[in-house]
Amino acid sequence: MRLSQMYQEIILDHYRNPHGAGLREPFDAESFQINPTCGDEVTLRVALKRDSTGEPVVADISYYALGCSISQAATSMLTDLVVGCTVADSMHIVGAFKHMVQGRGAVEPDEDVLGDAVAFAGVAKYPARVKCALLGWMAYQDAVARAVEAPAGPSQNGAGR
């Protein structure tokens, strides 16, 4: 019943076969995030490129994650959704994802924006698991902020919070 709402098949699939896992080079910035309540962690890298109009585009996301099925699957799905997007579009997706999972189940997710990630709507009903779903996404947001600040800068570990 409730369990299968939360652990939808697509989430379990991503958990068992995470997309884009592993740490790769080159990358523009790296972020390390930790969930202090459970000790789960993710190290996530972003590589950006410019499209023909000069807009920054997400070329690659690579990551090493230790965590529960929700955090692993959410990070995996993030890579599906944002690799190939412009940074601006990806931030729109991140915003919609945060809005959904922090919405206590009251937010109707927009499938056009979130695609398969609407599967995480069930997590919103479990406040204790929201941080799990967001771990990789916060790492992405942080890494992009670093990459945009210092486009060709060396990798830096984000201060885990």
Partner: peptide
């Protein structure tokens, strides 16, 4: 994962 056991 422990979180997932706890959820079940």
């Amino acid at each position: 994962h422990a979180h997932d056991v706890g959820q079940v």
